[in-house]
Amino acid sequence: MANRPSPAAAARAAVAAAANVTRGLEHALLTTVTEVVDKPDGRRQRWEKHKAARRTELTDGTMDAVRALGADAGMDEIAAHIGVSKTVLYRYFTDKNDLGVATAVRFFETILLPRLTEAITDDVDEYTLTRTAISVYVHAVADEPNLYKFALTSAPSSTATADSERLVAQLMTSVIVLRMTERDADTSGAEVWSNALVGGIQRAVDWWMTTRAIPVNDLIDYLTMLSWTSIVGIASYKGSREAFMAAPPQMPEPPDQVGDDDIVVDDEIIDDIR
Rank of each mutant, 00 (worst) to 15 (best):
P145C: 08
E165S: 07
G189C: 09
Y222R: 09
A13R: 06
S157A: 14
A243D: 13
A185F: 00
P7N: 05
D218V: 15
L112Q: 04
M63D: 01
I82Q: 04
Q170V: 06
V37P: 07
R46T: 15
K238W: 04
F244W: 12
A10G: 00
D262H: 05
Y137F: 10
D186F: 01
L58N: 04
D163E: 13
H50Y: 13
I120Q: 02
V105I: 13
S194L: 03
L29S: 03
Y127A: 08
A79C: 10
D76H: 14
R4N: 04
L69Y: 10
A8S: 03
L58F: 05
T62A: 06
L113A: 02
V205P: 01
A13D: 08
T229C: 08
L116Y: 08
R183S: 10
G189E: 07
V264K: 01
K49H: 15
A102E: 15
A243Q: 13
A133H: 08
D262E: 01
S85A: 11
D272T: 06
I269F: 04
E109R: 11
A162W: 10
A235N: 11
D143E: 14
D95E: 08
I120L: 05
P215K: 05
G61V: 06
T181L: 11
A65P: 02
T224A: 00
R179P: 06
I231V: 11
L226T: 14
A196N: 09
D95K: 07
M75V: 15
V192D: 13
L89E: 04
V232P: 01
K86D: 05
V258P: 07
M172R: 04
G239P: 00
K49C: 14
V177N: 09
W193G: 07
E35W: 01
I273R: 08
V192P: 07
S230E: 09
T211L: 14
R241G: 14
W193R: 07
E57G: 03
L219D: 03
R203V: 13
F108R: 01
Y222M: 06
A52K: 07
Y92I: 03
I176D: 06
G74H: 14
A16M: 00
E242S: 12
A13E: 05
A19M: 11
S188F: 00
A19N: 14
F150G: 05
L223I: 10
Y127R: 03
V216H: 06
D186L: 06
Y90A: 01
L223D: 04
G61W: 15
I269N: 03
A13P: 02
M75Q: 14
I269Q: 04
I273T: 09
P40S: 05
E268V: 11
D64Q: 10
P252R: 15
V168L: 04
P254T: 06
L152T: 12
D218F: 14
V36F: 02
E26R: 12
A104Y: 10
D98H: 14
G199E: 13
R183K: 14
S158E: 12
D143C: 07
Q170D: 07
F108C: 00
A28I: 10
R43I: 12
I234D: 12
R131A: 03
M63P: 02
P114Q: 05
L58M: 06
P114N: 01
F244E: 11
K86M: 04
